[in-house]
Simulated scan of single mutants.
Amino acid sequence: MAETPAARRKKPSQERARETKERVLDSAAHLFAEHGVADVSTNRIAAHAHISIGSLYRYFDDKAAIVDVLRNRLLTELEECFTEAVLGSLGLPLHESVQSSMRAVMRALTARQGLVRALAADATVAGIGFGGLERRLLVLTRGYLLQQLGPRPDDELDTRAFVMVNAGLAASLRIALHPPEGLDPDRLIEETANMFGDWLAAGT
């Protein structure tokens, strides 16, 4: 069935709308990373994106809506990095597998360091809104533990998964955003992964 003229006209308009929305998000991410969320207004975002404030409000109700989109994108990226690392390291020894997963999360956090800091100035798991991510990572980690350790009571798997996910995320945030002066971040990841690996190995 041939496209109608109206349908052909709509496609460029839809594409321009997507481009404008992405420009707003890119501008907001840049400004948040440089100045923090509180000190950036929607007017400033619109000016940086070279659009009118009215155009911005066609896509987002307020600044909070922009923050929500950026936060959800960040959490999705972290989940994808973690999932890829877990699936890609299933055949590795415990220490190496845990280290691979932590490094994947660290890379994602470091690449978005300014935005992560802006979204969670106190750099805590709760502060960035990791609740949804935590639930998804718990499922992945539980499956990983079941594969590595074999059948275990549910409460043991749930407890170990909770400790690994929360301690791992907290350590990754701390190292990525505020690396201790004089300490090698790679060494910190390695030591943390070794600690987890030893702990898991003791339970096999």
Rank of each mutant, 00 (worst) to 15 (best):
12 P>I: 00
14 Q>T: 08
17 A>Q: 08
21 K>V: 02
22 E>V: 01
22 E>K: 06
22 E>D: 06
25 L>H: 01
29 A>V: 02
33 A>F: 04
39 D>V: 05
39 D>N: 14
43 N>F: 14
44 R>M: 13
52 S>I: 09
53 I>H: 12
56 L>I: 05
59 Y>M: 02
61 D>K: 13
76 T>R: 15
78 L>A: 12
78 L>I: 11
82 F>W: 12
84 E>H: 13
87 L>V: 07
95 H>S: 13
95 H>Q: 11
98 V>K: 03
99 Q>L: 15
105 V>N: 10
110 T>E: 07
114 G>E: 09
116 V>P: 01
123 A>E: 04
124 T>M: 07
128 I>E: 03
130 F>Y: 14
135 R>D: 07
136 R>V: 04
137 L>H: 03
137 L>K: 03
139 V>T: 11
144 Y>N: 06
146 L>A: 08
148 Q>I: 05
150 G>C: 03
156 E>H: 11
156 E>W: 06
157 L>E: 02
160 R>L: 15
162 F>R: 15
162 F>T: 15
178 H>Q: 15
178 H>N: 15
180 P>E: 10
183 L>T: 10
186 D>L: 05
186 D>S: 08
188 L>S: 07
188 L>M: 14
192 T>V: 12
196 F>Q: 09
197 G>S: 00
198 D>M: 14
199 W>Y: 14
